[in-house]
Amino acid sequence: MPMDFSYKETWLHKINPSLKLLVMVLIFIHLLLIHNTNILINYMIGMLVLYLFFTGHPWRRLLVISIPFLFIFLTSSTSMIFFGKGEITWAEWGLVHITEESFFRGLHLGFRGIIFAVLGIVFALTTRPVFLFYSLMQQLKLKPKYAYSFMAAIRLIPLMIEEMQTLHYALKVRGVQGEKGVRGFYNKLKSYSIPLLSQSIRRAYRIAVAMEAKRFSIPGNRTYFYRLGFSKFDVIFLCYLLVIIPLAYITANHFPYFSITDVRFGR
């Protein structure tokens, strides 16, 4: 939730959110078609540049956020490295069978995971949800019913955290004493999660009624308080990608890191 921290606005913030989202989905599909690890690594570098230099968030925050990247890399790659199909055996202990092919396929998956993570976080760090949904309504014709429900629901999330605090107070005030051990933990989990869910549903329902009371559902063309259009920053963004992606291919062809060019089995 980027709006809770302070940050500098950069050109990435000013890109049209719908465009940003669409481009990311296209990149996703494109990445599924890349089976050459060399290209993928260059691709990754191109995206990391966006993350490291253009999100406008301080270094320390970026560093903390990137810790899970390591996990992504491991979760995406280990089983493939250990258990993937392959012919050139490197090592074998019991069930584990590491082959050259499986190793590079695992590596490939790891890098791909990191690209998705980086892109996702760049999006999260540079997009205000309110603008995203206004833009989805204006550019992609998302129905206001859905967009405003999202915006209202996102606003409720911090309130829910507060609610948890309140619940804690209430139980304390009413003299509930925490039990120890697994049973205590289970009871605690239950005495928080169920009220929290039911409270949130009630609150959501009331907000829906309040929205109706403010004539949300009258038919006709809505006007918008925020107008999201396109700007030169969208062009910059597209140009950046149009330079980086071909560059990733060219350098991968001329200066490959590995000799394997297709990680799929039997290619």
Partner: peptide, 26 residues
């Protein structure tokens, strides 16, 4: 349970949007 939006201006703007008031006048 009155408010639909997080900010003061957005809250009133929400009503104006519903009533299709042009953006420039909001």
């Amino acid at each position: 349970s009155q408010f639909c939006m997080p900010y003061v201006d957005e809250e009133i703007a929400f009503v104006l949007e519903n009533l299709q008031i042009p953006r420039e006048k909001m």
